[in-house]
């Protein structure tokens, strides 16, 4: 039986983690994601699992590493400046092939920036972030429901591919309230066995999980294996929503909160007879290059809208391969694109 709740995005995300079977959470206070940490401090205790308010973001992500290497499902959450600190541990998770879920409720930057909503961590999230040649799977929710659904799903994918998974949300999604619906007796998502985990070597050879590979060519082979995994993820895990793109002359490309604004613009413009559609990536890595490329083949123009100076724009350009057909509208440093600005931009195209 599905029940409807009224929830903030942050709390829906936290409950999604609980329902996915999260066994360990560590976090450090930072706005605008504090509701996740507060919610987890209660719910993890209620479920009999572990909550730790860590001494730093560096420590929080290393605790996720520790819980994960011990075989548990583990998560941390933060916002942009804190996520920068977590890059150290995320790189170690990727290198050691350990699952882990990281929530980034983005705020304005660079530096301390502000606590408004933003999408300026796109490059950091999708192009690696920390040192080394790796990717995290990156989900981009655009509603409180997707905050729940994608976090729930993230744990299964992290385990399936033994890789860090990031939920790239923004301040608006974290703070807004909407109905969220889920099965009351929903089971933890996609359980797997973890024979590699640190459990004590009773009746078996000792396990070692490490990213230091000094032998001749060993690290290169390890990286090749990682890349094979990333290729498989790119093949299988792309997710997106498209609205009215079939007959569109113009397709807006936007994710997260910007995707919602673009959706309203699309409806208004359609009423005026403009043939416009919306393509909303739900995974930012893997990015839906093929699908956008397919739209480009129909001869459409594109308008990329972001709360950044144009980061996803680079991926859209790679997919479309024709810069003349791509326009961009972005707001910076916590600014939010308005419907009026977007509609005006569309009318100039």
């Amino acid at each position: 039986m599905k029940t409807r709740y009224l929830s903030t995005g942050n709390e829906a995300c936290a409950e999604g983690a609980i329902r996915a079977g999260c066994q360990f959470y560590a976090g450090y206070p930072i706005t605008p994601q504090n509701e996740i940490t507060a919610y987890m401090s209660r719910r993890m205790e209620e479920t009999g699992w572990t909550f730790i308010q860590s001494e730093s973001e560096l420590s929080a992500i290393s605790m996720v590493f520790g819980a994960s290497v011990a075989g548990a499902r583990a998560m941390t959450s933060s916002s942009s400046p804190g996520i920068s600190l977590k890059q150290e541990g995320i790189s170690y998770l990727a290198g050691c092939e350990l699952p882990g879920v990281i929530i980034n409720v983005m705020r304005g930057g660079p530096g301390l920036g502000n606590i408004s909503t933003a999408q300026s961590d796109y490059f950091q999230a999708t192009k690696g972030g920390g040192h080394g040649d790796y990717h995290s799977i990156v989900y981009a929710p655009a509603s409180v429901q997707e905050m729940f659904d994608f976090t729930y799903k993230a744990f299964a994918k992290a385990d399936e591919y033994r890789t860090p998974v990031m939920i790239l949300a923004d301040g608006t999604l974290g703070q807004m309230m909407e109905p969220v619906e889920f099965d009351d007796d929903i089971e933890p998502s996609g359980r797997v066995t973890k024979p590699w985990a640190m459990t004590g070597a009773k009746g078996r050879k000792a396990n070692s999980v490490k990213s230091l590979l000094l032998g001749d060519g060993v690290l290169e082979r390890h990286n090749e294996k990682l890349q094979e995994k990333y290729n498989e993820i790119e093949e299988k895990e792309v997710m997106y929503h498209d609205h009215d793109t079939d007959d569109a002359d113009i397709v807006m490309v936007a994710y997260g909160t910007t995707g919602r604004i673009a959706y309203s613009c699309m409806n208004k413009l359609r009423e005026e007879g403009v043939k416009i559609g919306l393509f909303r990536p739900q995974t930012l890595w893997p990015f839906p290059y093929k699908e956008i490329s397919h739209l480009a083949a129909q001869g459409t123009k594109f308008l990329v809208i972001e709360m950044s100076s144009g980061q996803m724009l680079q991926d859209v350009r790679m997919a479309v391969q024709d810069d003349k057909r791509i326009s961009f509208w972005g707001r910076l440093g916590g600014g939010i694109p308005t419907e009026e600005e977007i509609i005006e931009t569309v009318k100039k195209m």
């Binding site: 572990t50 860590s54 560096l58 290393s62 590493f65 075989g71 583990a74 640190m198 070692s208 990213s211």
Partner: peptide
């Protein structure tokens, strides 16, 4: 871990007690 015949993992530089904290809480 090349010398010890029991389960051993690594940690980022200095984060060793954070990793151990979580392992102990899980086990």
């Amino acid at each position: 871990y090349d010398y010890w015949d029991f389960d051993t993992t690594e940690a980022a530089h200095g984060r060793t007690p954070a990793v151990a904290t979580a392992i102990k809480r899980v086990h």
